[in-house]
């Protein structure tokens, strides 16, 4: 099962990004073997439609869940149709690793819309 966490940087120690479509990076984390890799978000500098473009990226990467601060209406629509779970975290998490730990401990909330 693959998680995609929006991130300011390209490591597990990077600060998570509260923005989804405009996040600089996504950290792809595989819950089966704890392996991970960082991807630059191809949508970060789009003039418009960043939420859809970032969602398309996660869909193509076969993510099962997206973790971010919040999801805009277009991203929400796309990810819902793709059956990708949307989970939110707040600004208290200082690293991507701490977000992943909280996800594993089931401390994070589903995105509300």
């Amino acid at each position: 099962m693959i998680l995609m966490i929006s991130s300011q940087g390209d490591t597990l120690q990077s600060e998570p990004s509260l923005r989804f479509g405009r996040a600089p990076y996504f950290i792809e984390f595989n819950l089966e073997d704890d392996s991970w890799k960082a991807h630059e978000n191809p949508a970060v500098s789009e003039a418009g439609g960043a939420g859809v473009a970032a969602s398309q990226f996660l869909i193509d990467k076969k993510a099962s869940a997206a973790l971010s601060g919040r999801f805009g209406p277009n991203a929400h629509y796309a990810l819902t149709h793709a059956n990708i779970r949307m989970v939110t975290f707040d600004g208290d998490y200082r690293s991507v690793q701490s977000v992943i730990d909280a996800y594993k401990d089931e401390k994070l909330q589903e995105a509300k819309h």
């Binding site: 949508a43 789009e46 003039a47 418009g48 439609g49 960043a50 859809v52 473009a53 969602s55 398309q56 869909i59 277009n74 629509y77 796309a78 149709h81 793709a82």
Partner: peptide, 23 residues
Amino acid sequence: CVEVCEFHALAQIGTRILVFPQL
């Protein structure tokens, strides 16, 4: 269509194309 849309008004999910009228 998804590839050529500069405004990301289309997305592909499996065999379905989604349209985002507001984009």
